[in-house]
């Protein structure tokens, strides 16, 4: 039997040392905002392109946006600049709404909040808030999104120096188990290996190799952050490459194993089936000739009709002679 203190310590350890939070914080920091990419740093280094955005242009842009803001504000009543912050008793405002219902009737906490039945319900407020939010986004769509076009850059084909294609997934700040997953894809040919080494790399890659497009695809999500996963992928690739370059065992005796891959059949419309005018004409002629031939055969009796064959071969159904009574009924004389 453990001592009392020991038991206490044991039971204390059984509960989490953390505070329980109803809405748990996301496990991972929202890394999607800053994907692990070299492009941003590269972009920072390089001088802005001629047709790209320049500093004076950007200043004009910001001025434009301020102008738009001013216009919007001047139309809708007093603006935030026109309100004098000194005119409001800030302390009283803060005091008043601090404890709400729980401070009612307590003299030292100030006068009670009065309700004059002239406000809408909290549901109504929520609905209004939602409406405001929607309007805000609608304004953004109308005024700000088109300006993003200035930041667009033309697509650049990846060069030989960047053979790895990484894929990160963003769920726009939402929690998701795959936020930390990183996938890398690269072409076995781009690794600048000799044919024997490439073969060995393909054999080492196993089911991760796709023979249809000669790519090796690796993914990792066993670490908590994208950076760790990406590092693991990089290390794995470098290990694979060193092993592929190791000539002590070239795996030449092991046959390629592509059993994991089922090539997708691609069906092409047969060229001979395309209805060109010549083909249409040919088909028309063929059909009309066939119809003519059928007519001819019908005329000469060469066309075989299964129904007629059966009917003509059935035993002839001659009406049986009906016996006629010579006398009348029941032996009486015919009347």
């Amino acid at each position: 039997m453990a001592s009392t203190t020991r038991r206490l310590a044991f039971s204390a350890r059984r509960c989490s040392s953390k505070l329980y939070v109803q809405t748990a914080q996301p496990r991972f920091s929202p890394l999607w905002q800053r994907p692990l990419s070299t492009s941003s740093s590269r972009r920072a280094d390089e001088t802005p392109a001629k047709d790209g955005i320049t500093t004076p242009e950007l200043a004009d842009l910001i001025d434009d946006m301020y102008g738009v803001q001013e216009q919007v504000r001047s139309k809708s009543g007093p603006t935030w600049q026109s309100i004098d912050p000194n005119g409001i008793d800030q302390a009283a405002l803060q005091e008043q709404g601090k404890d709400g219902f729980w401070s009612e009737g307590e003299e030292e906490l100030g006068p009670d909040e009065d309700y004059y039945a002239d406000d809408i319900t909290s549901d109504g407020h929520q609905l209004l808030e939602q409406h405001r939010e929607l309007r805000e986004y609608a304004r953004m769509i109308a005024w700000e999104l088109p300006l993003l076009n200035h930041l667009a850059r033309p697509f650049e084909v990846p060069t030989q120096a960047t053979p790895f294609r990484f894929r990160y997934t963003s769920y726009l700040g939402e929690r998701h188990p795959a936020v930390n997953k990183v996938v890398v894809e690269f072409c076995a040919k781009d690794m600048k290996l000799s044919p024997i080494q490439t073969d060995k790399l393909i054999k080492l890659a196993g089911v991760r190799y796709n023979p249809s497009n000669d790519t090796i695809k690796l993914s990792c999500e066993k670490f908590d952050t994208q950076a760790q996963n990406k590092r693991f992928l990089g290390e794995t690739i470098s290990k694979l490459l060193t092993e592929a370059k190791d000539g002590s065992d070239t795996f030449a005796d092991v046959p390629f194993d592509f059993r994991h891959h089922k090539p997708k059949p691609v069906y092409e419309f047969p060229e001979s089936w395309i209805l060109t005018p010549e083909r249409k004409k040919y088909l028309e002629e063929k059909r009309s000739a066939s119809v003519l031939k059928e007519e001819e055969r019908k005329f000469t009796g060469a066309l075989i009709d299964g129904n007629k064959v059966v009917e003509s071969n059935l035993p002839r159904n001659e009406p049986e002679p009906v016996p006629v009574m010579i006398g009348g009924r029941r032996g009486k004389a015919l009347r």
């Binding site: 066939s290 031939k293 059928e294 066309l303 075989i304 009709d305 299964g306 129904n307 064959v309 059966v310 071969n313």
Partner: peptide, 16 residues
């Protein structure tokens, strides 16, 4: 099919 029709097993006109 003409043989079928002649045998009485296919009761159709055997055309193209």
């Amino acid at each position: 099919m003409e043989y079928y029709a002649h045998s009485g097993m296919l009761r159709h006109t055997v055309d193209d």
